[in-house]
């Protein structure tokens, strides 16, 4: 995903001389091509994320298109007030690109996790919030971020898997359907999609037909489109590598409340806690109930409850 981002950034810089790259002491090696070919448009602000974000706003006020890149936690938390006052309040054309989102830095612990960023940033006026699941989404998002004349946050992490055909068309605010299904709709944001797809294979083995939808844009959300997507769902599950407060589940619940939609629903994410444990990403996801098996079990449990409630007779294997 990061490679896709850098490739796209390079292309945008080639196309438009106003595109500028800001980093805060990260991106060793990966920025080499950019630095070699556009040295006058590359600035390392050092370990000073607040300054980088405010300076990006200053640059944008002069017509530049800065892409400010650092670890997501340091954009969303460390530089929050600068993002709010300097970038969003002034509605400036700054692109904030966070790496290592969710619990990607699984060996480092919560100081380097972003598991509340969607909640924080979604509530900032003028800001577009993107949370890509795969490289295809990142590629589209970079074009979209460039097209938007205003602040954009992109919540990157890593994913080598791909679930889209090369000709998939993405639309801002409209979740992308990864696969159709009839018994259950799973809405997911970000790279936790990989764990969700493992769970989906298990659910399908049980005879459950699952629709999988990737919510790549957390804001703006096309309310009507989402309402249409979920209003007839038998069961609805939201999965996110984020606190269940403020993120995807909250965003969809807002749509449900607004559109008066009541479908049985389940939130899978961090239940208002910081992620526990250290280790490889798989292990930390498992420790927090966010691995494929745990997700499968939670969903299966939920589906059974809903199904019993309806017919007193579980129709699935």
């Amino acid at each position: 995903m990061r490679d896709t981002y850098l490739k796209m950034l390079y292309g945008l810089a080639k196309r438009d001389s106003e595109v500028v790259s800001l980093v805060s002491d990260n991106g060793l090696i990966v920025y080499d091509d950019f630095r070699r070919d556009f040295p006058e448009r590359y600035y390392n602000f050092g370990i000073a994320e607040e300054n980088m974000v405010a300076a990006a706003a200053g640059m944008a006020s002069c017509g530049k298109i800065p892409f400010a890149y650092t670890i997501s936690a340091f954009i969303a938390y460390r530089a929050y007030e600068f993002l709010r006052d300097d970038v969003c309040f002034q509605n400036l054309n700054v692109k904030l690109v966070g790496i290592g989102s969710g619990i990607t830095y699984s060996t480092l612990g919560p100081s380097h996790h972003t598991t509340e960023d969607i909640g924080l940033l979604r509530s900032l006026p003028n800001l577009t919030v993107f949370s890509p699941a795969t490289r295809a989404e990142v590629g589209w998002m970079m074009e979209e971020a460039y097209r938007i004349k205003g602040p954009v946050y992109i919540r990157l992490s890593n994913n080598k898997e791909e679930y889209y055909d090369t000709n998939t068309e993405f639309l801002i605010g409209k979740p992308a359907i990864i696969q159709p299904g009839s018994n259950l709709t799973i809405m997911v944001t970000g790279t936790i999609i990989n764990e969700v797809m493992k769970a989906v294979r298990e659910l399908e083995n049980d005879g459950i037909s699952v629709e999988v939808v990737s919510v790549h844009t957390l804001k703006p959300l096309d309310t009507k489109y989402i309402a249409k997507l979920i209003q007839n769902a038998e069961c609805l599950v939201m999965v996110e590598e984020h606190n269940v407060i403020g993120g995807l589940y909250s965003a969809v619940a807002e749509v449900m409340a607004k559109e008066n939609i009541m479908v049985p629903n389940l939130a899978i994410g961090l239940p208002d806690m910081f992620a526990v444990d250290y280790g490889q990403l798989d292990a930390v996801r498992r420790a927090n109930g966010l691995d494929g098996k745990s997700i499968y079990e939670k969903i299966r449990n939920f589906v059974d409850k809903v199904s019993y409630g309806k017919s007193n007779n579980n129709k699935y294997k």
Binding site: N51, A55, G58, S61, C62, G63, K64
Partner: peptide, 15 residues
């Protein structure tokens, strides 16, 4: 906030 913002403005003007 104003000084960090101004750093970006000054940089852009130099560019």
């Amino acid at each position: 906030h104003g000084l960090p913002f101004a750093v970006g403005v000054a940089l852009a003007c130099k560019m």
